[in-house]
Simulated scan of single mutants.
Amino acid sequence: MVLCHGTPWSSRLWEPYAHALSSEFTVYLWDMPGYGASSKHADHPVDLAVQGELFADLLAHWELREPHVVAHDYGGAVSLRAHLLHRAMYGSLALVDVVALRPWGSDFFRLVAAGADTFAALPPAVHRGALEAYVRGASHRGLTDEQLATLTEPWLTAEGQAAFYRQIAQADERFTDEFHDLLSTITTPTRVIWGDRDTWIPPDRGRRLVDLIPGAELEIIENAGHLVQYDAPVELAVALHRWLTRTG
């Protein structure tokens, strides 16, 4: 199985789940270009079109045939683009609070898109304050200091700060519009999981997604925001294990 992170996260968000599931599955983690431990070079594009194509290439490089894919946030758009536009095949697909249907992207996204270079030049302390406030907003129950540090650390160096605003500036709804009409062609078993208190991507997107993907099932996790991995770790782990053992 392959775990896909979103933005502005990294594979570290999925690490505890990878360890827990590794007794029953061979688990692959990866950092998208521009995220986590991957390259943050300014010349490397990090938009969703690039990420989807690279994910399909990565699965081919790993010689994985029809792996189970679990995706969160941007990882949903990445995995859907890889499948629908680049013919990557999956054994099953679990979509957790994903970017897949418009509208997505916050007012903060639009503000950054209008002046990414200005944001990249913010004094480090100001950048840290904005970053931490932004990340905290993804959790309904609140983050511990350790969790906050895990999520913000990659973006606090000079290189990371520039990369943080660069990936936001390259976000565009056209990248999900390009596969919207193909969602009805999905035959892969699909489970949509959503936190009921997600303010970043409200649960109605999950309900709409289930309506568009034939045979898809929806599971709502109570009292969980966008960072359902931290807000409801036991509930999410059980939901994923139940799904994966059923489809595996």
Rank of each mutant, 00 (worst) to 15 (best):
R65S: 12
A216M: 06
S22Q: 03
L209F: 05
L95W: 05
R128T: 12
T26D: 15
A60W: 01
E219P: 01
E146F: 03
R87Y: 07
E146K: 12
W62L: 15
P154H: 07
A216Q: 06
G137A: 15
A77M: 04
R246Y: 11
T26M: 08
W243Q: 13
E235F: 06
I201T: 07
G115H: 07
S11K: 15
H241M: 11
T157N: 10
V46H: 02
V78Q: 00
H5F: 06
W104E: 00
G142W: 07
E235G: 06
D231C: 07
D97W: 05
D31R: 14
P123L: 04
T187K: 15
G6S: 13
E235T: 02
H61E: 07
R141E: 04
G225N: 13
H5M: 06
L156F: 00
S139E: 14
E53Y: 07
V210Q: 13
L54N: 01
P233L: 09
A77E: 01
A125Y: 05
W200F: 10
T190E: 04
D198N: 06
H127A: 15
T185S: 13
F25V: 01
L84A: 11
V234N: 14
L236W: 09
R12E: 12
S92F: 05
S79I: 06
L143T: 03
E219V: 15
T152R: 01
H226R: 13
E15S: 14
R81S: 02
D31I: 11
L218V: 12
E132M: 08
F25R: 12
P124W: 01
A163H: 08
A130G: 14
A121G: 09
G6M: 09
D172E: 10
D57K: 13
R102Y: 00
L93H: 07
F179D: 01
A42R: 10
Q170A: 14
H241K: 09
H72E: 08
G36R: 03
D231F: 06
T190N: 13
L59S: 09
Y134M: 14
